[in-house]
């Protein structure tokens, strides 16, 4: 109850609340496509690779948004260029490019700012969100959700059957880079809430949880957004209560939800499967 009272009272907490819910929603939405297209590693890569962009923006005194988007996109193209033009496989190309960007980012941040900045960027500190950051997150969030709604059909068919999509004339490579662009935006929006290292948990885990619960993409997207937002709220609560960095707490909240689904999801959960098998056996023995 104290939390709700504080939420009503303190502006910084309200900003943190709004921002983290939005981050939960958009990470869940984009995460579905990342998970289904087998691009989880790519999500991890882009989130790490925005670091040098943040550092450069900081040095130039501009909003970190611009630098982060620039290096995020550069990474996506770099990975594409290496895996398409050499015999290097995609996962190796991803590891190669993002570790280089991440290393560069750490060096730049250490030179440019202080150790506290680095910790905040790496692990998130949602309680330090300013109004301008909150608005940026809300605008990015609205944009991402709008793009996904407008192109849902195309995202669905190209994620499910890329060959059919290409055969009837969709520009599948453009769709790939559009998702990369949205992913970069989402990562940037998540920087302060969960930090670059743990963005991947917000991208992958709520989407995976939703994946265990439904057989329809549209439902999966809505569920993932809900689980993302719920994890954010739970994470924010414990982060505030025990004075912990928000990123790790939110990450563990997403994992807890996943474990519940993994065990008890009606069709896919391992406990539910066991129960089904046992009741079938009972029926069989009862008959014989």
């Amino acid at each position: 109850m104290d939390f709700i009272h504080d939420l009503m009272t303190y502006g910084f907490l309200q900003k943190a609340f709004a921002t983290s819910i939005m981050v939960g929603i958009i990470c869940g939405v984009i995460g579905c496509f990342i998970v289904l297209r087998g691009m989880a590693l790519m999500g991890d890569a882009i989130s790490h690779a925005v670091l040098p962009g943040v550092a450069i923006s900081y040095m130039l005194g501009i909003n970190f948004f611009y630098g982060a988007v620039a290096t995020g996109i550069l990474t996506a193209f770099g990975i594409g260029a290496i895996s398409q033009n050499s015999r290097i496989k995609n996962d190796a190309a991803i590891g190669l490019v993002f570790s280089a960007f991440f290393a560069l980012g750490i060096i730049l941040i250490t030179r440019a700012g202080s150790a506290t900045d680095l910790t905040q960027i790496l692990f998130g500190n949602v309680l330090s969100v300013r109004s301008s950051d909150m608005w940026l997150t809300l605008i990015i969030g609205a944009f991402v959700v709008l793009v996904v709604i407008m192109f849902f059909k195309e995202l669905l068919v190209s994620s499910f059957d890329e060959t059919m999509a290409a055969a009837y004339g969709l520009k599948t490579r453009m769709i790939h880079y559009t998702i990369m662009f949205l992913l970069t935006l989402v990562t940037v929006a998540s920087l302060q809430t969960v930090g670059v290292i743990l963005v991947v948990s917000m991208l992958i885990t709520p989407a995976s949880t939703a994946y265990l619960l439904t057989n329809r993409l549209s439902v999966m997207v809505v569920l993932a957004a809900f689980f993302g937002a719920l994890s954010s709220v739970i994470g924010l609560y414990f982060s505030f209560l025990y004075n912990l960095p928000s990123g790790p707490v939110i990450a563990l909240a997403t994992t807890s939800l996943f474990c519940l689904a993994f065990l008890f999801a009606p069709k896919q959960g391992i406990v539910s499967k066991k129960i089904r098998i046992m009741s079938k056996r009972k029926e069989a023995t009862a008959k014989s």
Binding site: L156, V157, F160, Y168, N215, R216, L217
Partner: peptide, 27 residues
């Protein structure tokens, strides 16, 4: 392009994709 229907090899499809039969046809 819109006059071309393509049926891929079965091995190229992710059969765990969250899609049901009637929505697959709707594609």
């Amino acid at each position: 392009r819109k006059q071309i229907a393509y049926v891929p090899q079965r091995s190229n499809i992710d059969w765990n994709f969250p899609i049901i039969v009637k929505d697959t046809v709707l594609l």
